[in-house]
């Protein structure tokens, strides 16, 4: 299983954790972000994701390095969809394995926060009556 994957195919929350943990690990956390049917009072029909793929992989590496430094978690995988994703499907999976649960939870949470802050992926929300690019933090990233 690849550590990092960008794919137009459905994500597999079981496969992402296969073979991730070692005999030192006491915890595996798998986070699945799924598409919900309403957002900001709008009825969502589906999402479409666009990625700057050539940059996504090095930024995933940077996030993994950050997670290693902050939490000592070395076993981390990130899989993200591109293209159309329907209600109820996973758009993103993060798996973290660690000797203890605290650091595995923290690693998964921090990874998701960093995905939303610096990973060059954008979602377009198609809702009843229109569509819109969803935008995260407006402050430009400079390093």
């Amino acid at each position: 299983m690849e550590r990092f994957r960008i794919t137009a195919e459905p994500l597999d929350e079981h496969a992402i954790a296969e073979g991730l943990s070692t005999s030192e690990d006491g915890a595996v956390v798998v986070f699945s972000g799924i598409v919900r049917a309403q957002n900001k009072g709008r009825k969502v029909l589906h999402l479409e994701y666009e990625a700057y793929e050539a940059m996504v992989y090095p930024v995933f590496e940077r996030v993994a390095e950050d997670v290693r430094e902050r939490f000592g978690v070395e076993r981390l995988r990130i899989h993200h969809r591109i293209g159309r994703v329907d209600i109820g499907e996973s758009s993103v999976l993060v798996a973290a394995a660690s000797p203890h649960r605290g650091s595995a939870f923290e690693a998964a949470r921090h990874t998701m926060n960093e995905i939303k802050r610096i990973v060059p992926i954008w979602k377009r929300e198609f809702f009843e009556g229109g569509d819109v690019w969803v935008e995260g933090p407006k402050e430009p990233v400079t390093e």
């Binding site: 939303k116 979602k123 969803v134």
Partner: peptide, 22 residues
């Protein structure tokens, strides 16, 4: 990189709106 970064010939320069993955 910061906006005032000086470019080199052959660079790939990208302008990225606020990201919204996840």
């Amino acid at each position: 990189v910061p906006r005032d970064t000086v470019l080199a010939a052959g660079d790939e320069l990208a302008f990225l709106p606020p990201v919204s993955g996840g």
